[in-house]
């Protein structure tokens, strides 16, 4: 059975809410039913068939072809199946995702992976601000699963993260891991200012010296064999941390919030 494919007819002037287009919601529906599904476009609803050319039958495997960054909420709350996006994704990509896999070839906008509790979210390009973070009004960010970004991520990566793993191959913006309560963030590139601001627990792994708030204490160089376990579990290119060994410089903080979070940085490769 061929994947259920949605090709955007034309770039919308308003944002389209695609949060209902998941394997869970579409299970058992015919192609005609799917084409008739109402989707919010701005403040009005339109049938999905008017916005997208839809073909294919396998709703467990959904493919979205779009050059627009205005498709919001793709994969929201999904528990199974896969969504592959050829192009870019809008805001709230994979929000509240509980299982399955989302793969974006291009960029994702704000709030990707917020409220996620399981599954795998892969972003081939860059991610906007608040990746795996808590949206305003929520007490927790990422609570499980894994987010992989091949490009750069914006500010507040993993804000209030509670569990799970965020992997960034490029750079991360300011306040990376702010208010983190648990979980792991790995950044292979550079990080912005105030890494780990107000973090209580959790681990931020870096390959370059961080710009920390003054409320972090230097814990000195440490040999941590847990890093071998972690490196073995990671896909390429994140597994390269295995070559860097288990000896890292460790900082503990934020001391204004219990100080049990850790920022680990490998020395630069020579």
């Amino acid at each position: 059975m061929s994947a259920l494919t949605l090709r955007l007819r034309e770039c919308p002037r308003q944002r389209i809410d695609l949060s209902g287009f998941t394997s869970d919601a579409l299970a058992g529906k015919s192609l005609a039913d799917i084409q008739a599904l109402p989707l919010w476009v701005g403040n009005r609803q339109m049938p999905a068939g008017d916005l997208f050319i839809i073909h294919g039958h396998d709703s467990d495997h959904i493919r979205i072809e779009s050059e627009s960054d205005r498709l919001d909420g793709i994969g929201s709350g999904m528990t199974r199946g896969s969504i592959r996006i050829q192009g870019h994704a809008g805001a709230y990509l994979g929000r509240g995702m509980r299982g399955g896999e989302i793969q974006v070839e291009g960029d994702a906008s704000l709030f990707a992976g917020t409220g996620m509790t399981g599954g795998l979210l892969r972003i081939g390009g860059n991610a906007g601000d608040f990746l795996g973070a808590a949206i305003p009004g929520e007490r927790r960010g990422l609570r499980g699963g894994r987010i992989e970004v091949r490009g750069n991520a914006g500010e507040r990566v993993g804000d209030r993260q509670r569990r799970g793993m965020i992997l960034i191959a490029g750079n991360a913006g300011d306040y990376c891991g702010s208010r983190m309560g648990a979980g792991t963030i790995l950044v292979l590139g550079q990080t912005g200012a105030n890494v780990g601001f107000a973090m209580r627990r959790g681990t931020i792994l870096l390959t370059s010296a961080p710009e920390l708030p003054p409320t972090f204490n230097d814990n000195g160089p440490q040999d941590l064999s847990v890093l071998t376990l972690l490196a073995k579990s990671l896909p390429s290119p994140f597994d390269q941390i295995g070559e860097r060994g288990t000896r890292v410089q460790r900082w503990l903080g934020d001391l204004g919030h219990g100080g049990q979070g850790e920022v680990l940085a490998w020395p630069p490769l020579t």
């Binding site: 569990r163 648990a182 792991t184 681990t203 847990v226 376990l229 972690l230 579990s233 049990q260 850790e262």
Partner: peptide, 9 residues
């Protein structure tokens, strides 16, 4: 209380 949990795979 200083113990750290890590969930891997």
């Amino acid at each position: 209380g200083y113990q750290i949990s890590k969930q891997i795979d």
